[in-house]
């Protein structure tokens, strides 16, 4: 990683993360590294390191965090959360960070595509005659799409923010 440019640090960043739903636990972190030791991604991709991410957030390295691809590598397995002595709930903190990234339009295109599918079909996979035919042959009841509520409940904005 390039050296930190102190002028670019955003002292508000940690507060923004902590104010997101799920981000509340961030400030209780005392950087003990238990989360990193429990994380199954960290040994496979060194860019992803829970404690390092917290450190970056606390330092205010907003762009380095929000514009990175590595924040999307969390598998949300809750391994870190289970071992944390400070009840930081790091899995949820990661969602808070990703939500902020989405607000800045830094997210993988697949996620916005899924959101559009939910607004249109109320489910991730469109259900047509082919699918219901297969179900019928196995004696399963048909699936009927009910997208109405989804369209009304999810604002018509790509990230929903």
């Amino acid at each position: 990683m390039a050296r930190i440019n102190l002028n670019k640090l955003d002292p508000q960043f940690k507060h923004r993360v902590a104010d997101q739903p799920g981000g509340e636990g961030l400030k209780a972190c005392f950087l003990c590294k238990a989360c990193t030791a429990a994380c199954p991604i960290q040994p496979l991709d060194k860019r992803y390191d829970p404690r390092k991410i917290i450190r970056m957030v606390l330092l205010g390295m907003k762009d380095e965090v929000l514009k990175s691809d590595f924040i999307w590598l969390c598998s949300s397995c809750y391994g870190c959360q289970e071992v944390c002595p400070q009840n930081v709930r790091f899995t949820e903190v990661m969602y808070a960070i990703k939500n902020l990234a989405a607000q800045e339009a830094c997210m993988p295109p697949g996620l916005t595509a899924q959101r559009s599918l939910l607004r249109k079909h109320g489910r991730l996979y469109e259900v047509g005659e082919f699918e219901n035919d297969k179900r019928f042959k196995l004696g399963l009841p048909p699936i009927v799409e009910h997208p109405e509520d989804y369209e009304k409940l999810l604002p018509d904005r790509p990230t929903g923010v």
Binding site: L111, H146, L154, V161
Partner: peptide
């Protein structure tokens, strides 16, 4: 019949959704 997606795929974009 009205049950649809639980909302899990939206969590990375917006937890409240």
């Amino acid at each position: 019949e009205e049950f649809g997606c639980c909302g899990f795929p939206l969590k990375s974009l917006n937890v409240e959704d």
